[in-house]
């Protein structure tokens, strides 16, 4: 009986905090899925770029590089990150249409360069980077809700809402959907594939920046933490299906909750192993992700 009541009191906070961090994995996964859907490239540099973004915000606001206010630092880093994303797309643009394999390898190279850049600029420092939000908290049905949680939820909803609005309602979004469904036909119709790709890469970089800024306060920032965050985003993308934007968001929340439950009930030390198991299981049970559309095939 005590076990059961303990379970009942443990579970809601675990689900809540899992869902909150899951939102951030979802943001990371959305960026991966956007680049994959439009240009068929799995961007392995995504996590490194997001890590660099967070480091830049730190450097610009703490006086390591510049001494700006937090908002200006974010703005400045966003511009720089957009520039780097454009540059990295320009680097691999000759091979994007030819070989998925070669372009994926090239993104690994870009990721290595960004990682080196982080180490070069900031060394092996471990950095704390907080959000400038007032601290408060309240209890709701046995769950402690903090200002951080609310910030994460609000920002995620705003960003995801804006993204889906753009994709659903604007010409750019229609172009994006067309290109990700059938690149050849959209080219025949006169769409510029490059600009659609660029839109996807830029928005993915911004999503990465937001996700990195929001996730750093829960842990700390070092040149190595970003690779495990990237794994969480990748797992979310696999769970939701690499082809589905809503899937990425849902997958993020699911992965966040599952990770929290695993850490609490089994062991907090084997998170990456657990994610590996999740990836392999998902690939076997739902090869196209949980939200895959069922469609027939022709022989």
């Amino acid at each position: 009986m005590t076990v059961l009541s303990g379970f009942a009191s443990d579970l809601p906070p675990l689900l809540w905090s899992g869902a909150v961090s899951g939102c951030l994995y979802g943001l990371g996964a959305l960026g991966l899925v956007m680049t994959y859907k439009s240009s068929r490239v799995v961007n392995f540099a995504h996590g490194n770029l997001a890590g660099l973004a967070a480091f830049l915000v730190y450097g610009f606001s703490n006086g390591a590089l510049l001494n700006l206010s937090w908002g200006n630092a974010v703005l400045f880093s966003a511009v720089l990150i957009a520039l780097i994303a454009t540059l990295s797309y320009a680097l691999i643009s000759p091979i994007v249409f030819k070989s998925d394999l070669a372009s994926t390898i090239a993104t690994l190279g870009i990721g290595l360069m960004l990682q080196g850049l982080i180490q070069l600029l900031f060394g092996a420092d471990i950095v704390n980077l907080d959000l400038p939000v007032p601290r408060f908290g309240f209890s709701l049905a046995g769950v402690r809700v903090s200002s951080y949680d609310l910030t994460v939820l609000v920002v995620t909803l705003l960003i995801v809402g804006a993204l889906f609005f753009v994709i659903d309602r604007t010409r750019l979004g229609i172009a994006f959907r067309a290109v990700s469904t059938n690149p050849f036909a959209s080219r025949v119709c006169g769409l510029n594939l490059r600009s659609v790709h660029l839109f996807a890469w830029l928005s993915s970089a911004v999503l990465g920046l937001v996700a990195a800024l929001l996730i750093v306060p829960t842990t700390f920032l070092s040149s190595t933490t970003m690779s495990s965050f990237m794994l969480q985003a990748f797992t979310a993308a696999v769970v939701g299906g690499f082809n589905s934007l809503p899937g990425a968001a849902v997958g993020g929340v699911l992965v966040g909750i599952a990770m929290n439950l695993f850490a609490f009930y089994v062991s907090p030390e084997f998170m990456n192993t657990f994610l590996l198991a999740v990836i392999l299981l998902t690939l076997n049970l739902f090869p196209g992700g949980l939200l895959e559309k069922v469609s027939g095939g022709r022989v």
Binding site: L91, A102, G109, G116, L117, Q119
Partner: peptide, 19 residues
């Protein structure tokens, strides 16, 4: 610290050259 940058550059450069 330059080693990752060098490796990354080599990776991208070789891939592009092969293409």
């Amino acid at each position: 610290d330059w080693v990752p940058i060098l490796y990354g550059a080599a990776l991208v450069a070789v891939t592009l050259c092969v293409n």
